[in-house]
Design a protein around this nucleic acid. Sequence first.
DNA 1: TTGTAGGCGTTATCAC
DNA 2: GTGATAACGCCTACAA
Lengths: 339, 339
Amino acid sequence: MLRTVTMSDVARAAGVSPMTVSNVVNGRPGVSEAVRRRVLEQIEATGYRMNAAARQLRSGRSGVIGLAVPELDRPYFGALGSHITRVAKDAGYRIAVEETGAGEAGEIDAIQLSQSLQYDGLILSSVNMDLRKIGGVQSFPIVLLGERDNPTGADHIALPNVEGARAVTRHLAERGARRIAYVGGPSTEAVSIFSLRREGFEAGLADAGLEVPRGGEDPLRFETQLITMEEGRRAGWQIAESPQLPDAVFAITDTVALGVVRGLADRGVRVPEDLLVAGFDDVPESEYLVPSLTTVAPDHEWTARRAVELLLARMEKPSRTGNEERAPFTVAIRESTGG
Amino acid sequence: MLRTVTMSDVARAAGVSPMTVSNVVNGRPGVSEAVRRRVLEQIEATGYRMNAAARQLRSGRSGVIGLAVPELDRPYFGALGSHITRVAKDAGYRIAVEETGAGEAGEIDAIQLSQSLQYDGLILSSVNMDLRKIGGVQSFPIVLLGERDNPTGADHIALPNVEGARAVTRHLAERGARRIAYVGGPSTEAVSIFSLRREGFEAGLADAGLEVPRGGEDPLRFETQLITMEEGRRAGWQIAESPQLPDAVFAITDTVALGVVRGLADRGVRVPEDLLVAGFDDVPESEYLVPSLTTVAPDHEWTARRAVELLLARMEKPSRTGNEERAPFTVAIRESTGG
DNA sequence: TTGTAGGCGTTATCAC
DNA sequence: GTGATAACGCCTACAA
């Protein structure tokens, strides 16, 4: 690779000082039109490109915001990345998305994080990391997305996990369901989408005057370890093979719900004729499935916009106290619960 | 924000030189165990973090490979990002995914590109950019993904667009379809997935001894401007309202196929009972849909691995001549064409 | 309006 | 095994 073209090279070629080139490149005022043109010509001629590393080293800014998500191939995160990219662009920032790999998370995220200091800020959407491990980064602008205890004082946008699950569960009850199955993650005490959506589900049952299972075996609870279509499908099989088919299923995410519907279909159980199904997230596909999927629809636009706003505010004023916010939502009622 | 902790600070605290700290941080040999421990202690104590910009400025490497995709919220690109991230990690690189925004592309991509020189290399999966605009970046390692003329001499991995579309079209014919509709992008001469998958489709028709439409009006061709579920749905409506229902539909992508199936369902047309449907890409959802979707399944793992391999080889030896490769594929036969 | 000096945090090189 | 020195390419501050 040939030697890199630097500002000095351009300056020499144009017969000016490096500083003048810098001024031209950055659109700063105080450069005569003649010189400006001459410099631009030489930039073209030499094929000069700004060195981002040098600029950042000097200015401390990279103009890039990192977005860390656990899995890129889940529609929810794809849509999130897409929204955030658009919002950030309007604010003059680029977004670089990184996949942290869910599950093990902790370590990986931490590494990711430490390295990501090349970004001006980070929007972190992770499920499993212990936030206390973020130590030493207090001074780095971070916005947390998604559920968790937040002992860090960082800005945090939560999904309407409890309220959303509660509302959609009530909806299932209003549709006449009495025995409502729950398909979701493992029972844990830690605050997570697992615990919160479950909590909302139980609150919804209570609202509807339905029995809330307490301890011991719960024949209507189907635990999955991961939030995947495959795990949902397995749960669908189990549900279909239950001694008594439930009236409805609430799945912890649309991705899982898709798997559940598939699993039910594998066993000849039809949705919504034999059984209602509802999910959570309103991923883009949900509206187009057959049957289209009833789901809790958090306002993704709002979330993206707010995440960027909070991050920019924090970058501006690192001493701000952390915000705790919650995305608004609706329940999108579709064919999978009778339309 | 407090002053950043630098290597010098750590060095002073540990009573060694900055160079030694650098050696420890980078795991270079030739540091006594005692000193190493002392340095690590002080790194911990001071909360020191490497400055990526400075390292890159000095070493010329960032350890980051860029992946530019047109749309993050299309499952195909989510899956691609996910695969590539895993492969790259094994090779010691991180992946930063950027959304370029399809459609207008050209400019945006070019900008994206020029900025992305902070990466050690770039995997570019774009649809619309005129590659000649990449001028001035010949010395920058790039691997192109997807369809196009490739006048640049850069490494290029193509999808099996022609062969795949051909094979799946033959499959539809083997299932007894005579009148096969095509749902895809606009007619263009430029080489693109639009032109290539269409070409493969027509070849498949010919293989099966079916009539290949020539010029003029083709009642079995439904053009979409974008590759979206919504456009697919509209095409589904049109198909359902045709004077005579076709026997089968080949949709240019799974995303479009999903929309088509939805649009057909809106009009009471059932898949596969009334009509067979096949797609292209084998996105993760396709297997879980009801009915599961028959589709051309390029080997995504292979593509990801090969893309990273080619890029690394190019980074190693910039003078390599460009490779032209084509991903292997199978036709995943599922319920939407009768299983 | 343009130029000069110096340093951002790291590492390659070479001496000790 | 460890340290001194000099860049990497740019930008802030100030001088001309």
